[in-house]
Design a protein around this nucleic acid. Sequence first.
DNA 1: ATTAGCACTCGGCTTTTTAGAGTGCTAACA
DNA 2: TGTTAGCACTCTAAAAAGCCGAGTGCTAAT
Lengths: 339, 339
Amino acid sequence: MKLSDRKKQILKIVVNDYIKTAQPVSSKQISDKYMTDLSSATVRAELAQLEELGYLTHVHTSSGRVPSKDAYKLYVDELMSRGKLTVKELSFIKEQFRKQTSDIESVVKNTVKIISELTDYTSLAYSTMSKEDKILNVKIFRFKPTVALLLIVTENTLIRDKVIRIPEDMTDEEVENANEIINRMFTGKSFGEVLTYSDKIESEFIEFREIFERIIEVLEDYVSSSSGSLFLEGEDKIMNHPEYSDVEKVKNFLSVVNSKEKVVDLLGENKNNIEISIKIGSEDDSIPKDCSLVTASYSAGGVNIGSYGVIGPIRMDYQKVVSVLEGVGKILEEMLKDE
Amino acid sequence: MKLSDRKKQILKIVVNDYIKTAQPVSSKQISDKYMTDLSSATVRAELAQLEELGYLTHVHTSSGRVPSKDAYKLYVDELMSRGKLTVKELSFIKEQFRKQTSDIESVVKNTVKIISELTDYTSLAYSTMSKEDKILNVKIFRFKPTVALLLIVTENTLIRDKVIRIPEDMTDEEVENANEIINRMFTGKSFGEVLTYSDKIESEFIEFREIFERIIEVLEDYVSSSSGSLFLEGEDKIMNHPEYSDVEKVKNFLSVVNSKEKVVDLLGENKNNIEISIKIGSEDDSIPKDCSLVTASYSAGGVNIGSYGVIGPIRMDYQKVVSVLEGVGKILEEMLKDE
DNA sequence: ATTAGCACTCGGCTTTTTAGAGTGCTAACA
DNA sequence: TGTTAGCACTCTAAAAAGCCGAGTGCTAAT
């Protein structure tokens, strides 16, 4: 059934008001505050029908209406007016980004912080570590007889470094040598490729076997499912919202959000959308019960390299969140383009 | 006034029981469960006197006794029996550490995790970035025309890396050159020294001015008060304890614990003690209200390079916490010695 | 010094009461 | 036919009242 314009208008009012106040909204309020030309009785009739259609719920016989998940969905798809960031917010974002140094990691880290700050929700980002990412350069930097730092630079400007052990009896030249050979072998290849051929390659360089193994280990580690960097900010922000006035719920929320695997699961899904994606409630049940997730993804050089977003109660200020994500996203893309 | 042995014994019972149950403990419970040779009336008399002396409080006229801060202090200083870790726990620790790779950062990170896991409290660690730490080696690794990775290896085996920008028109040789000169200048010097002389040095190398400035920036950044790495684990564990059944309190706790500056403040203090230090309640008021902090410090090569510990409610299982910190500490020291 | 006994206190729980906000329905109205 | 005033009804949230019992403090006896 198609909703009349008036029904839509009323539904929008209900959702807006409920998002703002977290209180069930009554017919009288609507008629008084938003639709002075209509009596509460008329509104009441409309509300009853909207409820019939599944967009509203009654907490109990008396006491106003609360939006259902369907209502939220309709709201974000059709009803919600797209907000713009205020000048103040925009300049705050720019201000924050200005302090920024170069590497992607810290840019993303900062982004997450800004988003959480601006929206007052828990915010998260995930940098994909894709198997397709091509290796540009591998550098073994030995800074102690038995210890070296392994640097891997990839196409997506991702740098990974990790400490590895070096056999003590290797001379610096040998290490240098190994490095060069490895570089020749790896450069231009993707993580995936390198790992696939690792057995074959390995046999060719028995002399550097040990170093080689370490490196492969590191690579495997990076590609392994839950790798990639995860950034989380404002986990505690959830407590600023009345639906989480109960410690049990907070605990549950945090246990999900603090589990890297689960979060990666959440964020991993919307690969291709540059668009903002909104998941409401247990529309998909990986999200913690009664939560919504709003995400976008960012890319460098046209390739999707991660996603970022906000997680919070279903009664979320979608308008604000979307505008913040859009605003920040634009600036973020610019920053990454520079690299 | 000196406490009789019996009073001490009773006080110990009260603290132990209260730590375990979080419930005020009554004279009857004591007489029934712990001192069957004494009647509740006698115990009652003793309790009354202990209260007189300030070790116990009455929540209200009826309903049992609760330890005061003084009681906790006495408890940890004299009364508490030192616990040993169970075999199970010990093997758990070793198991966890076995997976460990080399670098300090991840060892410490792992340590924090283990502690939090084992104690069920929020656990934290802080790696000092001291001005006295001497620079062993500086390496500029240019992996893109305008971008380089700056590595700084220090005496305490700390490695810091950071991405810096390089002027595009510098040739690789020039960068190499700059690197060498900088290395000569910096090696053997402490952060503090380098920063002090930075003005003077700078004038000598106008040609490399830009790189030089970047490096100084990075150094400054590291030395700046809130630098050093902070590790936090199990922030949510606080909610497992009944005194934090109120969201407001949790919020307050988290707001302190999530603020890097504040935590660094907390941990920064007990520099010299290898010993375990226990701070109860607002004995010192930097700690979040009604919290206790148990810390120890770790060192490498005899130098103190950080501290780690546990933060939680005053009603904390000190015995368990201390034994875990000691146990983990020993293994940690060993691991770090290997480096 | 210890203990049994008893009166007394007071928090926490359950129950009752009350007030008011909101609905649904109906009948009247434009 | 859509809108509205009016009213009975429902249900919650908050306050008030009542009850239970755990625990204490004190006293008098052992």
